[in-house]
C-alpha cells in the first residue's frame, strides 16, 4: 500500500477521541453503545477491517468529543482489547485500555422476554458483568438470566 493512500485512511483529528484496536466488525456496535447516530453533529470516521499488526481491526474517530471513562469501559463488552486515545491539538494526550465494568445499565436488553425489565416498567436493564476465561458474561439483575454469547446482538 502506498503511503499516500494510507494517510487518507487514517487522517489525524485535531480534538476528540480515537478508539483503536476494536474487534474487527464491531465498529458500528461501538457507535451504538456510545449513542452516536446519523443525527449526531460532530464528524465521526469509521474504519472497518483495517489491517493491523495483530490482524484486522476496526477504528472509530470521534471529532470534538472526549469519551468519559465509564463510556469507554462499556465498549469492553464487545471489544475488550480496544484502546482509547484522547487527542488535543493533534497530539495524543491520554492513552488507555478499556476496563471491563462490574455492572452495566441501559445498554443491553435481557434475552428473557418474560423478564420484568422488558415490560413497560420505569427501569433500565441492569447486568452484573463477569469476565470469565470463556469470555464476557452478563447476568440480569432482575431475572438472573445469563447472556454469554453474541452480546452485540442484544444492544439496546
Amino acid at each position: 500500500m502506498s503511503a499516500s493512500k494510507k494517510e487518507i485512511r487514517v487522517q489525524p483529528i485535531e480534538n476528540g477521541t480515537v478508539i483503536d484496536h476494536i474487534t474487527a466488525g464491531q465498529a458500528l456496535n461501538v457507535l451504538k453503545i456510545l449513542g452516536i447516530s446519523g443525527v449526531s453533529s460532530g464528524v465521526v470516521s469509521v474504519l472497518i477491517n483495517a489491517p493491523g499488526e495483530a490482524g484486522n481491526k476496526d477504528v472509530v474517530k470521534i471529532e470534538g468529543r472526549e469519551l468519559e471513562a465509564d463510556e469507554a469501559d462499556r465498549i469492553s463488552l464487545i471489544a475488550p482489547n480496544a484502546t482509547i486515545n484522547i487527542i488535543r491539538d493533534f497530539e495524543v494526550q491520554e492513552k488507555k485500555n478499556v476496563e471491563i465494568p462490574r455492572h452495566v445499565e441501559g445498554i443491553v436488553k435481557c434475552i428473557n422476554s418474560n423478564c420484568i425489565s422488558n415490560s413497560n416498567e420505569p427501569v433500565a436493564s441492569k447486568f452484573e458483568v463477569r469476565n470469565l476465561k470463556s469470555g464476557i458474561e452478563l447476568r440480569c439483575d432482575y431475572c438472573e438470566r445469563v447472556i454469554s454469547e453474541n452480546i452485540a446482538e442484544h444492544l439496546l
Partner: peptide
C-alpha cells in the same frame, strides 16, 4: 407472572417485599 418482579418491587418500596413467586 414476570421474572424479576419482586426485585423491581424492592427498588420502589419503602417497606419490605416478600417474593411469593415471580414467574
Amino acid at each position: 407472572p414476570m421474572e424479576g418482579a419482586a426485585k423491581l418491587a424492592s427498588e420502589f418500596s419503602s417497606v419490605p417485599i416478600l417474593n411469593a413467586g415471580d414467574g
